[in-house]
């Protein structure tokens, strides 16, 4: 195989952003909460823009604990799915322009949320780190913050059941 020139940056970005959009657009609950993802290379940051309907304690006011849990869980699931998709995509095994609605997402086995301070009525951010990703099980840690990256308002750890690889016999 001859050495080929690197692809133009715009082509690469289009492919990666398209794949990420495809992954997210299929999940109604992600759009319902208004969660977006910022991508830098393969690094994802989940963003939860503030909205009145996310409030759990109107007196403070503070984000609903369930919203925080959901935000962390979404960040973890998308990080895992993105990790698998990235490998397939960069190896040229998936067509990122194809409909990605059929992407099988990891299933949550358990998820533990540690509420460190109350979520303020403003945008929140989260990043997930895959601590272990095996063929069947994965362990992911997620950190969430608002104004200050070093002052987490919540963190979470979850275990996930990975979907069988494409082409694997059905369970």
């Amino acid at each position: 195989m001859s050495v080929s020139r690197p692809e133009p940056v715009q082509i690469v970005k289009q492919r990666r952003d398209g794949a990420l959009r495809g992954l997210l657009s299929g999940v109604p609950y992600i759009s319902y909460l208004g969660i977006q993802f910022d991508r830098r290379g393969d690094e994802l940051t989940a963003i939860l823009p503030f909205d009145e309907k996310l409030i759990g304690n109107p007196a403070l006011p503070a984000l609903h604990g369930g919203v925080t849990a959901a935000f962390l869980e979404v960040a973890a699931i998308i990080e895992l799915a993105w990790g698998s998709l990235w490998e397939e995509m960069e190896a040229g095994r998936v067509d990122p322009t194809a409909e990605l609605g059929a992407v099988r997402l990891p299933k949550t086995i358990d998820f533990t949320v540690d509420y460190l301070r109350s979520g303020l009525p403003r945008d929140a951010y989260a990043r997930a780190r895959i601590n272990r990703s095996g063929r069947r099980y994965a362990s992911v840690h997620v950190e969430a913050w608002q104004d200050n990256r070093a002052r987490l308002f919540a963190q979470g750890t979850g275990h996930f059941l990975m979907p069988p690889p494409p082409g694997a016999p059905a369970e």
Binding site: G26, V27, P28, Y29, Y32, L33, G56, H64, G65, G66, V67, A69, A70, F71, E73, V74, G101, A102, R104, L105, T108, F111, V113
Partner: peptide, 20 residues
């Protein structure tokens, strides 16, 4: 509130919010 478009199953996060 669907979390898995392939099956129409509710997202775990919505169930978490209810339990919380």
């Amino acid at each position: 509130f669907i979390g898995d478009p392939a099956t129409g199953v509710i997202h775990g996060g919505a169930v978490s919010a209810l339990m919380d």
